[in-house]
């Protein structure tokens, strides 16, 4: 009797697990199936490196979008990575542990704010500031970068803190006992010992920044242009899919799926690098 219910539970869990996994697999297969044939039909070079995006005239070059995505992400990293790592070092090495244990979950909560809210703040506060003080339309590559830079902070801070706290206290004691100052200890031992975790946190932040859609649509302006300055309006890969998918048909629709494939591959590569870096940390102990 008992073994029968054991078996039953096992079967049910197995069915649920398989349906979840197969849903993921199906989505992946669907995107690849819709997108990859188009890429080869249209030509890999034409698709990736042409600047002509005129769906009505059957021109599908996504180079401006790739450029925009890379620049927006690069800008976000330029802001978010140093800021996030600095906050993580400050919270884990200078702030008393009990206070850090309150602040860290609070920062992690920032990750729960819907991206549309970040976008909203960007439109209402950031874009007018940029328009008034720096010029341009305000909704621009720069505002996209700043909003994304802020959005990735919780990821960078939280994972960096975890890896810094995993550094054994004995390393810090050993360093201080040799006459090192707190900053020398951080710079020469703590950061080196937690390097792979910090790198992983930045890469995961990078993945989040590339994949972010809603906030970017709201603040980046969305014109399909090769950006010439940080104040230009740009459209990222994600924004391109989200903006046009609702009315696209035929080749146009396939081109959008192909855009998804490009994003998909990029993010998979980044996440694999991150998980390899994290695993290296585990092995090192």
């Amino acid at each position: 009797m008992k073994s029968l219910s054991e078996k039953g539970v096992r079967r049910i869990l197995m069915a649920v697990a398989f349906s979840a996994i197969s849903a993921l697999l199906l989505i992946t297969l669907f995107i690849i199936n819709e997108g990859v044939p188009f890429i080869f039909k249209y030509g890999v070079g034409n698709f990736l490196f042409s600047s002509d995006w005129h769906p009505q005239q059957m021109k599908f070059g996504i180079f401006p979008m790739i450029t925009a995505s890379l620049w927006v992400t690069f800008g976000a990293m330029l802001l978010g990575a140093p800021l996030g790592v600095a906050v993580a070092l400050f919270l884990s090495e200078y702030v008393p542990r009990p206070i850090m244990r309150i602040i860290k979950p609070t920062i992690e909560l920032l990750a729960a704010i819907p991206s549309v809210v970040y976008g909203f703040i960007g439109v209402i506060v950031l874009a007018p500031l940029i328009r008034n003080y720096l010029g341009g339309p305000g909704l621009s590559l720069l505002s996209g970068s700043i909003i994304l830079g802020i959005m990735i902070l919780p990821t960078v801070i939280s994972i960096s803190i975890d890896s810094i706290l995993a550094v054994p206290q004995s390393y810090r004691e050993g360093s201080l006992a040799l006459g090192a100052t707190t900053w020398q200890t951080i710079n020469m031992v703590t950061v080196k010992a937690s390097k792979s975790g910090i790198i992983a946190s930045i890469i995961l932040g990078l993945g989040r920044a590339i994949g972010e859609t809603m906030a970017v649509i709201m603040v980046a302006g969305n014109s399909v242009n090769m950006p010439h300055s940080a104040l230009d309006s740009v459209r990222t890969l994600t924004a391109n899919i989200a903006l046009e998918m609702s009315y696209a048909t035929g080749l146009h629709r396939q081109a959008l799926f192909a855009t998804g494939v490009v994003l998909f591959v990029g993010i998979i590569i980044l996440n694999s690098i991150a998980s390899i870096a994290l695993r290296k940390r585990m092995v090192k102990g």
Partner: peptide, 17 residues
């Protein structure tokens, strides 16, 4: 002070260098 008075700890704690 710590440069003049050094310490060896209970568990060996070489740096991961």
């Amino acid at each position: 002070l710590r440069k003049r008075v050094g310490m060896v700890f209970q568990r060996p704690n070489p740096f991961p260098l």
